[in-house]
Design a protein around this nucleic acid. Structure first.
Length: 579
DNA sequence: GCCGTTTTCGGCCCGACTGTTTTCAGTCG
């Protein structure tokens, strides 16, 4: 069977893990080489299986040796080096790398000295107090490992928390720290600030003169179920739900350098540091400074550091070292969509939908308060068993909207509908009724387990329907709870490009749908996008923020987003599709 | 294992905390 980019990424990740054990060092150059290669394939817009070996070496991070291994893997499913390493480090052994605090050096030592080959072996060795006889280990090491193993199910090293769960916790900690006297600033950084869909640990930076006071307050927070580390400038806690939160406290003068450093990504940082070294400087979490004189060149703001390095400011969602540094140096960063560009919301529910939580009047008022120029009310169509609205209810909604329109002369109210895409691609109502809506968005809400071909066909059927303006939450995934439907993205995007059907970017934190690779591929095909909230309550309009950050992560430019158009231009764009 | 406007060989980012240490190794981010 054909192997996908995802399969290749998994193989390269496995090689990186095996090489950590082989090299006895998580930062060994070969390890980093495989990690870089995995990252490069992850961000590749096209199927790597279609590339020749020499094509592959043109990709930054993939050289001759890795290209040959990828080719062999694609053709045969494995290659000698992989088999050799798997034999030396079987799954039962590598499983132990998931234990926090246990690195490759110690693991190899345990195997060589104590014959520890499995997690069970390790438990027995700890119970027998055998570890304390080894150099470099003691009774405390045994106790820490015992606890770490006990918590393994909750938060192994590889556990990732959906951003929807982690973001509120991070915001709460930031608020608590900001309230402390002497704290000049506090923010979350890391993958959360880059707006990754899942978060490993939460990284928080605080600026203050008295580092220890802030660190002490942090480990004393109510949500700190357990303190993992507690120093003056660096501390870590674990919440009850198993989320790890790391805090760094720096002087206010270093805040920019610290935020930059802890926002990452690791690959982005390494590239920045190399750039600094080329100029005879060094970059750390405290400052960009001269290697010789140690004079500080920039530190207070991220922007000043980028500027000194000859770079335009790079928005956090782009910081993955996938070409953004070269683009910032050459002045060719994408003209990203920003929240202030968004003029309307095209996916909003009232309590006519069974899952809506506020009356129409409140939803409209809240949209107006945000200054939106147009708003589509898109309650569920009749086919959604519990939530859907009948034809009669829909017509009543049209009259209510017409009446409300007089109260909101500055905002165009569109009579819309969220249609349900059935397993065969069928939609609610009939063609005549569908054509009468001002706006229609069609989405998948069930039948998530059809095969790829069936999913592709049902999506394309909906896309090709003349009354459908956009496809909502394309994959139907719920991050961390339900995988999205599997479909042939290139064919689906091709149909959208051919028909002028837009693709929604759904800003709900547990959706963030479509996925980044699909958005990025679609934008290169000239598809139009709409960034929506899928609001079910007035508070949900803040999802515009997350929708925009998600779009930025896919390098989406303002010109590709239809709801950045001013009201009249947008209405003309809609008319083009609906005829 | 990758990479090159000093280089095709010889480099490859930097610092905090912990537990074990009498000055450091391992792990982590």
């Amino acid at each position: 069977m054909a192997r996908s980019n995802r399969d290749v990424v998994a193989m390269l990740d496995e090689m990186a893990l095996l090489m950590k054990l082989e090299e006895g060092n998580p930062q060994a150059f070969r390890v980093r080489a495989y990690e870089n290669a995995a990252g490069a394939v992850k961000d590749l817009g096209t199927p790597i299986a279609e590339l020749s070996e020499s094509d592959m070496t043109a990709i930054k991070g993939i050289g001759k040796s890795t290209a040959a291994k990828i080719r062999l893997y694609l053709d045969t499913g494995t290659f000698p080096k992989l088999e050799e390493l798997r034999e030396r480090y079987p799954p039962a052994f590598t499983e132990m790398t998931r234990i926090p605090g246990l690195g490759p050096k110690t693991l190899i030592k345990l195997r060589d000295e104590l014959g520890v080959n499995t997690l069970d072996d390790l438990r027995r060795a700890i119970d027998a107090e055998a570890l304390r006889d080894l150099p470099g280990l003691g009774a405390k090491s045994e106790e820490k490992l015992r606890e770490a193993i006990g918590r393994l199910g909750m938060h192994g090293k590889d556990r990732r928390t959906p951003i929807a769960e982690a973001l509120p916790v991070a915001a709460e900690v930031v608020a608590a720290l900001s309230a402390i006297t002497g704290v000049k600033a506090a923010d979350y950084c890391g993958s959360m600030r880059r707006f990754s869909e899942t978060i490993g640990d939460v990284d928080i930076i605080a600026a203050a003169r008295d580092h220890a006071a802030v660190s002490d307050a942090f480990v004393g927070l109510d949500l700190a179920e357990r303190v993992l580390a507690h120093g003056d400038t660096k501390s870590s806690i674990l919440t009850r739900s198993g989320l790890q939160i790391d805090l760094r406290v720096v002087d206010p003068g270093s805040y920019g350098a610290a935020v930059l450093y802890f926002t990452g990504s690791k690959a982005h940082n390494i590239a920045l540091r190399q750039r600094a070294l080329e100029r005879g400087w060094t970059l750390n979490e405290y400052a960009l400074s001269d290697l010789e004189t140690e004079d500080v060149i920039a530190a207070r703001s991220e922007k000043s550091v980028y500027k000194a390095l000859g770079l335009r400011f790079i928005p956090p969602p782009l910081r993955e070292d996938t070409g953004e540094i070269e683009a910032a140096a050459g002045g060719s960063l994408p003209r990203l969509v920003e929240e202030r560009h968004i003029r309307g919301d095209l996916h909003v529910h009232s309590d006519l939908s069974g899952d809506g939580r506020a009356p129409l009047r409140d939803m409209v008022a809240a949209a107006s308060a945000r200054g939106l120029e147009y708003l589509a009310i898109t309650d569920h169509g009749e086919n959604l068993a519990i939530n859907g609205a009948s034809r009669r209810q829909m017509l009543a909604m049209r009259r209510k909207l017409a009446a409300l329109q007089g109260e909101y002369p500055d905002m165009a109210l569109l009579w819309g509908c969220e249609l349900n895409i059935g397993p065969d691609g069928s939609l609610d109502y009939d063609a005549g009724f569908l054509a009468s809506f001002d706006w229609a968005i069609a989405s998948v809400h069930s039948h998530f387990d059809l095969d790829d071909d069936a999913q592709t066909a049902r999506l394309i059927a909906a896309i090709e329907h003349p009354s459908v303006n956009a496809i909502g939450h394309l994959s139907g995934r719920m991050i961390g709870r339900r995988p999205g439907i599997r479909f042939d993205a290139t064919r689906v995007l091709g149909a959208a490009a051919a028909t002028g059907t837009a693709l929604e970017i759904n800003g709900a934190l547990d959706r963030l749908d479509a996925t980044v690779d699909v958005i990025r591929e679609g934008s290169t095909m000239g598809i139009d996008f709409v960034i929506d909230t899928d609001a079910h309550h007035p508070n949900d309009y803040r999802r515009l923020t997350s929708g925009v950050l998600w779009a930025q992560r896919a390098w989406l430019e303002r010109k590709r987003v239809a709801n950045t158009r001013p009201r009249d231009g947008f209405l003309r764009w809609v008319a083009r599709r609906r005829g």
